[in-house]
Computed example of a mutant assay.
Amino acid sequence: MPLVLPNNGEGDILAAAVAKAAAENLVLRLYVNDVTPAESDTTATYTEATFTGYAALTLTPASWVVTEGAPGDATYPQQTFTSSADQAAQSVYGYYLTRVTSGRIAWAERFPSGPYVIANNGDNVKVTLKFTLD
């Protein structure tokens, strides 16, 4: 499933582009409800993962690599979420990003080959972020 930029994310990008609002750091989160991202989504659309060892990750702005061109893109190094204990199975359907201060959704993506089941110590989900504009 392709990355979806909900209306909240579009508004925030436009506001930052014209200096109406300051950009905010992003927080990478996994979601466990069986939802397909849509433009009308908000942060409340998603149920965040809770498996043992999971924690949302605040992304470091300097780690983004921005490449200008047609198309241009921004990429972030792969992030790994790893279970630290055996537990009840939890299906991870995708990821979403929120803004660190406002909590508004930035974008979301459902894993094309998911969901990934986390149940055992050492089970993990890897996410590589790439945002492309043309």
Rank of each mutant, 00 (worst) to 15 (best):
P2A: 14
L3Y: 08
L3Q: 08
L3T: 14
P6I: 13
N7E: 15
N8I: 13
N8H: 07
G9P: 03
G11C: 12
G11W: 06
I13A: 09
I13V: 12
L14T: 06
A16T: 09
V18W: 01
V18I: 08
V18F: 10
A19I: 12
A19E: 10
A21F: 13
A21D: 15
A22Y: 11
A23L: 03
E24H: 10
N25R: 14
N25V: 08
L28R: 01
R29A: 06
Y31T: 15
Y31R: 13
D34F: 09
V35R: 01
T36Y: 07
S40P: 05
S40W: 09
D41C: 03
D41S: 10
T42D: 15
T42I: 15
T42C: 05
A44N: 11
A44M: 08
T45R: 11
T45W: 03
T47L: 04
T47D: 13
T47G: 05
T47F: 04
E48Y: 02
A49K: 10
A49V: 10
A49S: 14
T50V: 08
T50L: 04
F51E: 07
T52H: 02
T52D: 05
T52I: 11
T52M: 06
G53E: 05
G53H: 12
Y54N: 01
Y54L: 02
A56R: 08
L57W: 01
L57S: 07
T58F: 01
L59C: 06
P61S: 05
A62S: 04
S63F: 00
W64R: 06
W64C: 00
V66E: 03
T67R: 07
E68I: 00
A70E: 09
A70S: 12
P71I: 05
P71D: 06
D73Q: 10
A74Y: 07
A74T: 10
T75S: 13
T75A: 13
Y76R: 05
Y76N: 12
Y76C: 12
Q78A: 14
Q78D: 08
Q79H: 02
T80F: 04
T80Q: 14
F81R: 00
F81P: 00
T82H: 09
S83Q: 08
D86R: 02
A89I: 05
Q90M: 03
V92R: 01
Y93I: 07
Y95V: 02
Y96W: 00
Y96S: 01
L97I: 03
T98R: 02
T98M: 01
R99A: 03
T101E: 15
T101A: 14
G103I: 09
R104C: 03
W107H: 10
W107T: 15
W107C: 15
A108C: 09
A108E: 05
A108R: 05
E109P: 06
R110W: 01
P112W: 02
G114L: 07
G114I: 13
Y116C: 11
V117W: 14
I118H: 07
A119T: 15
N121C: 11
N124L: 04
V125A: 02
V125C: 04
K126P: 02
K126C: 04
V127A: 00
T128P: 01
T132F: 03
L133H: 12
L133R: 10
